[in-house]
């Protein structure tokens, strides 16, 4: 039980960048950016290849995120420079990245046979704190020091990242990004370069997705070019779970909601795998959840409207 929660939360913190990235494209820019599927996988393969080549893991992870940001900027340029429909631009970049990821990795799937990854850091951290990496017990429940250290690292990373992004959205350009997502005409009239803001926002959003991809592939010690399939839906699920738990309207709360949503999502998935659903079913469950989350509020509204008409006096 404890190992499951620790593992679920760790994976949840790893998903936080993705959730925040999807929050930026889906909530702030108001469109579903499918290039996230490609950039998530791109993050995984770039980090894997760099780490296998012997690069230091944190550096490799940062470079993977930058690669994702560049791909995201490409989506933005397709939209703003060439006037391609937003959804189509995302599909084009996602499709192109599928082949590109294959070239980066050299094959379609790969085990992480590297000397040092993020896991190594967690292990050395565990030895420093707990003395060894064997099983420990807390109130009779088993846990592994390595996963506790992973949890701490990823937790710190997620919170720092969330804080940094909140700070960004308090700067003039951050405020302008929010404005451009909501009302382009007003922002143009206020002198903002709306196309540039869109490119910046998509770069950040996809950079975050790539960061998640890079971290997860290291945590699972495996990488595949199909890792990114359906990641946009996963991101949406996190955002919507966050909304369900923090139904507030203010910017900061919605932002925090996406962060918490990622944690809730992974813990729920961990529980589902406990009642032994196949891991290949996870995407189906996620898709059904997102569909329900989108349909339910409308259904509720529909059910309420005739009720008022029926209960007129007399």
């Amino acid at each position: 039980m404890l190992t499951m929660i620790i593992g679920g939360l760790s994976l949840g913190f790893i998903l936080v960048p993705l959730a925040l990235g999807v929050h930026i494209s889906y909530r702030l820019l108001r469109f579903t950016d499918i290039s996230v599927d490609g950039t998530y996988a791109l993050g995984g393969v770039v980090a894997a290849q760099l780490i296998i080549m012997g690069l230091e893991p944190v550096t490799a992870t940062v470079l993977a995120a930058i690669a994702g940001a560049m791909a995201g900027a490409c989506t933005g340029l397709l939209i703003t420079r060439f006037g391609i429909q937003r959804i189509l631009a995302g599909i084009l970049i996602m499709t192109a990245l599928y082949s590109l990821n294959f070239y980066v990795l050299g094959k379609s799937a790969h085990l992480y046979d590297a000397e040092i990854t993020m896991l190594t850091y967690a292990e050395s951290g565990a030895i420093a704190v707990f003395g060894d990496t064997g099983a420990h017990f807390l109130f009779g429940m088993k846990f592994f020091p390595r996963s506790v250290m992973s949890l701490l690292y990823y937790g710190a990373m997620a919170l720092l990242l969330g804080g940094a992004l909140l700070l960004f959205f308090r700067t003039r350009i951050g405020l302008a990004v929010r404005g451009a997502g909501s009302n382009e005409a007003a922002m143009r009239a206020l002198g903002a370069d709306v196309p540039l803001l869109l490119v910046v926002a998509l770069a950040i959003s996809n950079g975050l997705a790539a960061l998640s991809g890079a971290l997860l592939s290291q945590e699972l010690a495996m990488v595949s070019i199909t890792d990114g399939v359906g990641m946009i839906v996963t991101g949406l699920a996190c955002v919507m779970l966050g909304d369900a738990f923090f139904g507030r309207k203010t910017f900061v709360w919605r932002f925090a909601g996406a962060l918490i949503g990622a944690l809730i999502y992974r813990v729920l998935i961990a529980m589902l795998s406990f009642i032994s659903i196949f891991s290949s079913d996870v995407r189906l469950v996620t898709a059904i959840f997102v569909t329900l989350a989108l349909v339910f509020p409308r259904l509720l509204k529909k059910l309420r409207t005739p009720a008022i008409a029926v209960t007129h006096p007399e």
């Binding site: 700067t171 003039r172 350009i173 405020l175 302008a176 206020l190 002198g191 903002a192 370069d193 803001l197």
Partner: peptide, 9 residues
């Protein structure tokens, strides 16, 4: 910010 630029301030 209009006329002053949308910077990182």
């Amino acid at each position: 910010c209009c006329g002053r630029g949308f910077t990182f301030k």
